[in-house]
């Protein structure tokens, strides 16, 4: 078994509404698996169930062979689950460097130490310096997050998520709100990171999806109606009708 993530029969209803209707999918080691679908298809609900912010009514979620269906969010992170948010979610009063530092510290541990000096933990700040050197944020390191441009925030989120060294990274619309150049930057950053972890990519930007994804699943009304590689999906009449067709019309 090389499934990093294995979801089987995931069911979530809100009142009378079925948000995910027995969804099953897998993400394999080193793979980028894209999840596409129109708004309201249940993509965010699925992501939030994998993260643990929403508990499913039925079904299982396995991360690297371990059942995480009932674990609280933070414990899933410890087992190798990373994520970015649809609407960027950062520590706005801190600088880029401090955000990364806290992310690295969270992974490194020692978080209950009350007599040390966080600013003097060399193992953390060395790693942060390396991350910054390799990223587009290098010259923005000491800018407060609140003052960053939208695209920079997205980049920072990705860098923070990767600094957790996840086995699986959930990307919730990383291209949302980005201009063309920024999108290209993000695609490059994701391609560069693909060796580090598997990814489940939720995205509307089809150009990015076709550029990145090894496999694509299409979610409509809470159900996966099709799955396959880019060519399969492009050629699939059901998908064209239910999703791609809609966009072109």
């Amino acid at each position: 078994m090389t499934h990093v993530l294995e979801i089987s029969g995931l069911l979530k209803t809100f009142g009378g509404l079925t948000a995910t209707d027995h969804v099953s999918l897998t993400v394999d080691t080193g793979e980028i698996h894209a999840l596409i679908g129109p708004n309201g298809a249940g993509k965010s609900t699925l992501i939030n169930q994998i993260c643990g912010e929403i508990t499913p009514n039925a079904g299982q979620i396995h991360l690297a062979g371990r059942d995480i269906t009932r674990l609280p969010p933070a414990d899933r992170v410890a087992l190798g689950l990373g994520r970015t948010f649809q609407i960027t979610s950062l520590l706005d009063d801190m600088t880029v460097r401090e955000n990364l530092g806290l992310a690295v510290q969270a992974r490194e541990g020692g978080n209950f130490r009350i007599f040390d000096r966080a600013a003097k933990r060399a193992e953390i700040w060395d790693e942060v310096a390396t991350i910054l050197k390799d990223s587009a944020l290098g010259d923005r390191a000491d800018v407060t997050v609140a003052d960053l441009a939208h695209g920079e925030k997205k980049q920072l989120e990705l860098a923070m998520a990767l600094s957790q060294r996840p086995r699986l990274l959930l990307l919730d619309e990383p291209m949302a709100g980005l201009g063309h150049v920024e999108s290209q930057q993000m695609i490059e950053a994701l391609l560069a990171a693909r060796g580090e972890c598997a990814m489940l990519l939720v995205e509307h930007d089809m150009e990015a999806v076709f550029a990145l994804a090894d496999r694509i699943s299409v979610l409509v009304y809470g159900r996966i109606i099709a799955a396959g590689n880019a060519d399969d999906i492009r050629a699939n009449p059901t998908v064209r009708e239910a999703y791609l067709g809609e966009e072109e019309a």
Binding site: A74, S89, G101, L102, A106, F112, R113, I114
Partner: peptide
């Protein structure tokens, strides 16, 4: 010392964005 410590940093992070801290594996 406390507010400069590793723990102090985590607490400051939680004040600013609890959801983000949880996504970094902090209970």
């Amino acid at each position: 010392r406390l507010v400069q410590s590793s723990f102090g940093q985590i607490i400051a992070g939680i004040r600013q964005n609890e959801r983000r801290m949880a996504a970094m594996g902090i209970s």
